[in-house]
Amino acid sequence: MEDSPLRIHDIMACDVYWDFDGTPLPREQHKFLVSFHPTPGIPTPELVRSITARGPDGYRVEFANQPFTPANTNGHIYDRTLDYYWYMVNLPEGFLPGGVYSIEVVGTDGSVRNRSRHQDIAASRRLVEHYTARREEILASFAPSGRRELETVPAAGELECSWKTLDQLGGPDAYYIHRLSTGGSAREFDTQNLTWWDNIFVQRMRGRSEAGLNRSSVRVRADLTADTRYAYFVEATDANVQSETNICVFQPHQYFRTPAATGTAANA
């Protein structure tokens, strides 16, 4: 049905290097993602009957029509800032073999949508090899970090988060995505309710062709709350278009906290 409100924006089928601390999951994983155009007036999940990812040699994975959580790693995420949904499933089964992967979306109205992409394993392996070789130097570069207390409670644009990029250390170009949430641990990080994130995929769609490229810092465009613990992580990818991405490196969470009131002296 060409007039169906359920329209795919883009898809991902890519490797994931899951470098989060304190997780029982293996570092080498893969994921599938499908993002939708907004569906004003009705939540997108109410329009979805099924979503299926397929790949070489009969590979098949079903997306769940439920909220995505760190526990289930399969479901939908709502971006309240742009009023749109995406579905994602993370799979702890190693990296993908090269080849063509597709995602099929069937709507409750009977409409069927398909998108496909090719997985480049050489690009994926190259970025991971450079990251793991310089991992300790990269992790030591994050600021703020170490659960330190900030000197003031930042208003929008006042807090800068910074890190070293792979190209600064002799590695390949990469694109960087920053996500910030309240919480003092990876488990408390709330993917469904981010304080702020720089969505380089939307930035690219809006004409910024180099969005996220070799970005070594961001300014958080959100007011932070006093006396609150925060966590952020920086994802490194090889593209800023979802369907061109072959690898996502999820670097370890970094932590800091805000003082009880603006002007409070910092305490380690």
Results as ranks from 00 to 15, higher is better:
Trp86Asn: 10
Val100Met: 05
Gln203Asp: 15
Gly58Ile: 04
Thr182Cys: 06
Ile103Phe: 00
Gly110Gln: 03
Ala53Arg: 00
Phe20Glu: 15
Arg54Pro: 01
Thr73Pro: 02
Gly263Arg: 06
Met1Asp: 07
Glu158Thr: 08
His9Asp: 10
Leu166Lys: 08
Arg257Gln: 09
Val234Arg: 03
Glu235Thr: 15
Gly110Thr: 05
Thr69Arg: 02
Arg219Tyr: 15
Asp190His: 04
Leu150Phe: 07
Ala186Thr: 15
Met88Asp: 01
Ile51Cys: 06
Glu28Ala: 15
Phe36Arg: 05
Ala133Val: 04
Arg117Ser: 11
Pro38Trp: 00
Lys31Glu: 12
Asn214Val: 11
Gln168Met: 01
Asn214Ala: 08
Ser162Pro: 06
Thr108Asp: 00
Tyr59Gln: 01
Gly146Thr: 02
Arg125Val: 13
Thr152Gly: 06
Ala133Met: 03
Arg204Leu: 03
Phe256Asn: 12
Glu46Cys: 09
His76Asp: 04
Thr23Tyr: 05
Ile8Gly: 07
Ser209His: 13
Asn65Asp: 12
Asn74Ser: 14
Ile8Asp: 04
Asn240His: 09
Val220Leu: 15
Leu91Pro: 08
Pro172Gln: 07
Glu137Gly: 06
Phe142Leu: 07
Arg204His: 09
Thr191Trp: 12
Gly171Asn: 07
Ala226Asp: 08
Arg204Gln: 10
Gly107Thr: 06
Tyr59Asn: 00
Val218Arg: 14
Asn246Arg: 05
Pro154Ala: 07
Gly75Ile: 11
Asn246Glu: 09
Phe250Ser: 15
Leu180Gln: 07
Asp79Arg: 06
Asp10Tyr: 00
Val153Tyr: 07
Arg135Thr: 09
Asp238Arg: 03
Asp57Pro: 00
Ala13Asn: 02
Pro70Thr: 04
Ser111Asp: 11
Phe250Cys: 12
Gly212Asp: 14
Val202Ile: 15
Asn74Val: 09
Cys14Arg: 13
Pro154Trp: 09
Phe142Met: 05
Gly99Tyr: 04
Pro70Tyr: 07
Asn193Thr: 11
Phe95Leu: 01
Gly94Val: 05
Gly207Met: 07
Val106Lys: 00
Gly170Leu: 00
Val241Leu: 15
Phe142Pro: 09
Leu169Asn: 00
Gly75Asn: 14
Asp238Tyr: 09
Gln192Asn: 15
Val202Cys: 11
Asp19Ser: 12
Gln168Val: 00
Gly98Asn: 05
Leu25Lys: 07
Val234Gly: 04
Gln254Leu: 11
Glu137Ser: 02
Gly22Thr: 07
Asn246Ile: 05
Pro40Asn: 10
Asn74Pro: 10
Val105Pro: 02
Cys161Asn: 10
Ser35Thr: 14
Ala133Gln: 11
Pro259Gln: 15
Ser217Trp: 11
Arg148Phe: 13
Glu104Phe: 01
Phe36Gln: 02
Asn193Trp: 04
Thr132Ser: 13
